[in-house]
Simulated assay, not measured.
Amino acid sequence: MESALEDIEFLALSANRVEVLDALAETPHTRRELQERIGASQPTLGRILRDFEERNWVEQTGREYAATPTGRLVAEGFSDLREIVETEQRLRDVANWLPTEVMTFDLRRLRDATITAPTQTRPNAPVQRVLGLLRDGAGVKIVSHAFNEQSMGVIRRRVADGTQTFEGVFSAGAIDAIADDSALRERLRELVDLPGAELRIVDDDVPVALTITDDVVHLFLRDDDGLLQAAVDTDDDTVSSWAHDVHDRYWNEARPLNADDLAD
């Protein structure tokens, strides 16, 4: 009997085999239907189907072939493995900076996420990505250990125009950093005073830099030295639900930030 690894290798080494098994796991097909769907030649399909029948992965009824229960199990498991590896490949360069200690969702939810990294020609690309989302968002929520000047400026203008609402929760350190700069402190005071904007402070550390703009969740990823390495954003429903839960939890634990708190 072949080992499990040998069967995995047998399947993985041929895209045609994978496609045939996936097709037959979905619904029965004739050989002609398989040829039209996959594009493989009839001799190739014949060899694949014979190999599958030897492994009891498919069975023939009349002119149609269909996956057996164990064939469907293999197809589903291989599909899961492929999805996991595709996700790992996509996240490989940023995985070390993901806030996995607070991420309660399956990482496969980030398989189709947009990843924005700095480049030599666009060193500020991650920030520009979130600024674009902020300019288009009607409702913005943030939980973060930092509040950069550019984001604050976009939010302040949009809220003042009445085109955006804002609920921000920041660590005390983030607010202190702004308050230490007189110009930034004044801009933050103006934002706090605007109808449609509400800011709160938490004394504990905030392990994420998370922005929710309408249906999009955006994460700034920083290294251990606090340097911005990348940004990840997605409109996945599960990630969105997680992000709103994180915001709600910090929001409920935080205290309001008032303009008086930013007095000179």
Rank of each mutant, 00 (worst) to 15 (best):
M1I: 08
M1N: 07
E2P: 14
L5V: 11
L5F: 03
D7P: 00
F10M: 13
L11W: 08
A12C: 09
A12K: 13
N16A: 15
E19L: 15
V20R: 10
D22E: 15
A25M: 11
T27L: 10
P28S: 13
H29Q: 14
H29K: 15
H29L: 07
R31F: 00
E33G: 11
E33V: 09
E33C: 03
E36P: 04
A40E: 06
T44G: 00
G46S: 14
R47Y: 02
L49N: 08
F52C: 07
F52R: 11
R55Y: 02
W57Y: 08
E64N: 12
E64R: 15
A67C: 08
V74P: 03
A75C: 09
E76T: 14
G77T: 11
F78D: 06
S79A: 15
L81Y: 07
V85E: 09
E88S: 10
R90P: 04
L91I: 11
R92M: 02
R92F: 03
R92H: 10
W97P: 08
W97N: 13
F105Y: 11
D106P: 08
L110M: 11
R111H: 11
R111V: 12
D112V: 06
D112C: 00
A113W: 03
T114A: 12
I115G: 10
I115A: 11
T116H: 06
T116G: 05
P118G: 05
T119C: 06
R122T: 14
A125E: 14
R129Y: 02
L131H: 01
L133D: 02
L134K: 06
R135G: 10
G137L: 05
A138P: 00
A138H: 13
I142S: 06
V143K: 06
V143L: 11
H145S: 15
F147E: 10
N148S: 13
Q150C: 03
V154D: 06
R156P: 04
R156Y: 00
V159Y: 00
A160N: 09
G162T: 12
V169W: 03
V169C: 12
G173Y: 01
A179F: 00
D181I: 09
R187H: 14
E190K: 13
L191A: 04
V192H: 04
V192Y: 01
P195G: 09
A197N: 05
A197M: 04
E198D: 13
I201G: 07
V202E: 05
D204E: 15
V206M: 02
V208P: 06
L210E: 08
I212C: 05
V217L: 05
F220M: 07
L228F: 02
V232W: 00
D233A: 09
V239M: 07
S240L: 14
S240Q: 07
S241W: 01
W242G: 08
H244E: 14
D245L: 10
R249W: 07
Y250L: 09
W251H: 14
N252D: 15
N252G: 13
E253D: 15
A254R: 07
N258A: 12
D260W: 02
D261L: 05
A263Q: 12
